[in-house]
Amino acid sequence: MSKIAHYLRAINAENMKEWRIEWKYKPDFIRQFLEPFVYLFPYFLYGYALLGGRYSSHLKSITGVDDMVAYTFIGYLIMGFLNTACWAMGSSLRKEQWYGTLEAIFVAPVPRWVYVAGMALHSTCHQGLIMVFQAFLITTVFALVFKTTGIFLVLLIVVLMLMGLYGLGIMVAGFTIGMKQWWVISEALSTLITVVTPIAYPLAVLPIFLQKAALFLPTTYGIIGVRHFLLGEKLAISLPLIIFRLIVILVVWLTVGFALFIFMDRYGRKKGILSLY
C-alpha cells in the first residue's frame, strides 16, 4: 500500500472512530445539535432590540442587505468552522490522552499530524451536518431566501477558508503537546478571531486597525464572500482578490501550523512532556 493511501485510510479510521465514540454518548450528541441555537438567538434578539425589527435601512445602505436575521445567520454559520479548528482539531491529541490511548496510537507507523487531520475530517463533517440542520430550521422559521446562482463559488470560498483554518487547528494541536493549559491559547485565538471577523456586522464598522487585522483572517474573506453570493452583500474587495488572499492565507497558515506542530512534537518527545499531563 502506498504511503498516501495508508495515511488517508488512517485519517478516515480516525474520523469513523470519533463518530462511533460520539454516538455512544447520545444525549451529548443531541446537545451538540441544539446548542448552536442557544448561542445564535442572542444575536437575533440584540439585533431586534437595536433595530426595532428585523429589517434595517441603515444596514442596507452600508451592505446592500436589509435583513438582519439573514445577514447575521450567514456569519454565525461560517464561524462554526472556527470552533472546528480551535477546539475540535486543537483538542484532538489531548482527547486521546483523556482516553488513555495517546501512547498506543503514537507508536503506530503514521505521522502524528494524521490524527489531527482525522479529527479535522470528522469535525468538518460534524459541523457540516449541524450547519445543514441549522440552515433548514432557520430558513424555515424565518422564511429566508438565498440566491443559489454562485453556489460553486461559495463552495470554493468555504473550502479555501477551511484549509486556512486547518492551519490554525494543527497549530493549536501543537500547543497541546507542549503546554498543559493549551486552552488558554485556543480560547484567546477563537475569541480574538470571533471579535475581529465581521460575523454580525460589516467590516466597515470595525475600527480601522481591526479592519486591517481582519484582512489576515480567512474567516473574514469566507464570510464576506459567502454573504455576497447568498445575500448580495456589496463587496469592498474584488472577488479575484478574495480568492487570491484566501490562497495566500491558507499557504501561510498551513505552513506555520505544520512547522509549529512538528517543532512541538519534537520538543515534547525531547522533554518527555506528554507523560506529565
Partner: peptide, 9 residues
C-alpha cells in the same frame, strides 16, 4: 494497565 484501548468501542 488497561487504558490503551477505546472503552466505548
Amino acid at each position: 494497565g488497561e487504558r490503551s484501548l477505546y472503552w466505548k468501542l
